[in-house]
Nucleic acid binder design. Structure first.
Lengths: 149, 149
DNA sequence: ATATATAATTGCATTATGCAAGTAATTAAG
DNA sequence: CTTAATTACTTGCATAATGCAATTATATAT
């Protein structure tokens, strides 16, 4: 296939819209798309530092620092100084943050399940395995697919 | 699979990074990621109007209008009034715009080909078919996967 | 003609972005 | 032990992006 870009672009865009839509319907004014990604990433990482999360998302640390400040102000995220190194802040979700994140997560998964329900069971299996393969291959490609800088 | 979101998120993020990286190495200061998507979309559509492109990308028309202005100033895009309706502006790429777009397109496709080269021929086939299936299913899901508003 | 609708642009206020410089804490060197 | 070098994070500042409301210009309907 010589139009790989088109395929991926369309997929990424459609998923982006799904994502925005879910975030909108869940959180409305409460949360931006980027912020929902931050919650997601804090949730799934083990006691991450600022750099851990900003790095994973490819967001500049300075922008990230400000985003975290607003999330803390909203009462969704907590910063705890690392016991062995006071420079480091461990990020975690507050109870409210977890609830919101679960809600978004549920919505996104439900929408995706809806999309997948159009496929046969066999196709679903294949599609999922394919994405897993792709993800592995991308993680393996040192040069590309990696956060900037 | 109950973690569809995780799979898609990772894929979209990795492709996003690949995309940024390519745009950076091709155009450097010259072009933002959004702008590269605008070029792409103008290229592949047939004589699109402003709304056609901004709608496809899910960008607010007013923001889009300003982006187009800067692209016109850079000499990459041309606006032509529609012969039958002077309210409409047809967008097209200048020669320079086409060259730049081709360059980006080449890079992205090359990087993706690199990723795919890690898979067996059979896996590649399967992966491509899977994405096509997904894209179709997403386009079909009226509610989600659609630009906001 | 006058009213309505549509395509696009501009005003304006808000938010996001990222570099450079700053603060604070930790580690390394002399 | 004290000074220098590193590391984690935060702020200043200037620029770019965003989106709603209002405006302009053209086209369609009554």
């Amino acid at each position: 296939m010589d139009n790989l870009r088109g395929l991926f672009q369309l997929l990424a865009r459609n998923f982006g819209f799904l994502n925005e839509r879910c975030c909108e319907s869940c959180c409305g004014q409460e949360l931006s798309l980027t912020q929902s990604h931050i919650l997601y990433e804090i949730q799934r990482k083990h006691q991450p530092s600022m750099q851990d999360v900003s790095g994973a998302l490819g967001i500049d640390v300075t922008t990230f620092s400000r985003q975290i400040k607003t999330l803390v102000d909203k009462g969704l995220v907590k910063k705890t100084p690392h016991p062995d190194d006071n420079r480091i802040n461990i990020l975690s979700l507050t109870l409210e943050g977890q609830q919101l994140e679960n809600q978004i997560n549920g919505q996104v998964n439900a929408q995706l399940a809806g999309v997948m329900s159009q496929l046969t069971a066999f196709e679903r299996e294949t599609v999922i395995r394919s994405i897993e393969l792709l993800n592995k291959a991308m993680q393996n490609s040192g040069s590309c697919c990696v956060p900037p800088k």
